[in-house]
Simulated assay, not measured.
Amino acid sequence: MELENKATLILLDKGLATRPPFNPYPDKVEFIQKQSFFLESLGRRGALSGTEVTHLHFNIETNQLGAALSTGFIQTAQNKQARNYFIRGKEIALKHTKVFRDYLEKHSLPAPGGIEPEVTESTVPVFSDKLMMFHFSVMIYAGIGNYGVAISESQRSDLVIDYSRLNAEILKYSEDGINILVANEWLEQPPLSIDRQNFSKN
């Protein structure tokens, strides 16, 4: 938390901090009158809810982080399979960023800027391909979880459809990553519970 606060103060001091989108504070309580609130094709409300904006902004930031990480990994990966995997991951992250950015821009809301220009030109390997693939896998599974939460908290069908569609793409991509890890013997088996059924058979 201390490091986060220091980083934020530096960004503010340099004029680099951008304010995330926000909704005006409501002056009265309103209740949903029609089911069209959830279905945009039936004359749904023209605005995004605060929760929807929060998830769109957060998922743009995480995908931009993924694109930047991919750039660094592409420059330093020694294994061709891993490098191609990172290239594909960057393409997916940029595609997903555009989908989410379009929602915010359509509603005249600001989207966070990318951090990819901050990646240096270095091509000297800092991490092993095994470690980079592991970190990438963890990031992918975190993204799948983020999309799942966004689906559960979004109240418009078009957002739910897009999150579900993009989540399916990430799941397929993560499976391909597992295959690379297994093929290179980089995937360690986690500790398992005692196999009681095997005892009973023997």
Rank of each mutant, 00 (worst) to 15 (best):
K80G: 00
L12V: 12
D158T: 06
V29D: 10
T18S: 06
K6V: 08
K14F: 06
M132Y: 05
L187S: 01
G148P: 02
F31T: 08
Q64P: 03
N184V: 02
S41Q: 12
Y85W: 09
K90R: 15
Q35H: 11
N59Y: 02
L192P: 00
I194T: 11
A67V: 08
E40K: 11
K130S: 05
I170K: 15
L69V: 14
L109I: 04
E188A: 14
A150T: 02
S193T: 11
W186I: 03
S152D: 08
A67N: 01
P117C: 07
Y141L: 09
E169H: 04
Q189C: 10
H107T: 09
Y25W: 09
Q197D: 10
E2W: 09
I151H: 02
I32E: 07
L187I: 02
F199W: 13
A168C: 09
K80I: 11
D27H: 13
H107L: 06
H107D: 10
Q155N: 12
S49H: 08
R44I: 05
E116D: 11
S154A: 15
A150L: 05
T76M: 13
H57P: 00
E4T: 12
I10W: 11
R196V: 13
I92D: 04
T54R: 14
Y103I: 07
K95N: 10
E52D: 05
F136P: 04
E30L: 06
T123I: 08
T8R: 14
Q64A: 00
I170L: 15
A93F: 15
G72P: 05
N184W: 01
K130W: 01
P21V: 05
L104D: 01
F31P: 04
Y147I: 14
L104I: 06
N146A: 12
Y103D: 07
F22N: 11
Q78M: 13
M132W: 03
A77T: 00
N146E: 12
S154W: 07
G43P: 08
N184H: 07
M132F: 04
K90D: 03
Q155M: 12
I140K: 07
Q155A: 03
E116R: 07
L39G: 04
R83L: 03
M133P: 08
Q75C: 01
T123K: 15
H135A: 10
G66A: 15
S70A: 15
G46T: 14
V182W: 00
M1R: 13
A7E: 11
D158K: 03
G89D: 01
I180V: 08
W186V: 02
M1L: 05
L39D: 15
D129I: 06
N146T: 12
R101M: 12
Y147F: 12
L109Q: 08
G145Q: 09
P24T: 10
F127G: 01
L12Y: 07
R83Q: 14
T54C: 11
M133S: 04
V53D: 02
P112H: 04
N179D: 03
Q33R: 11
S157I: 13
F199C: 06
D162M: 09
D129E: 02
E185N: 15
S41C: 09
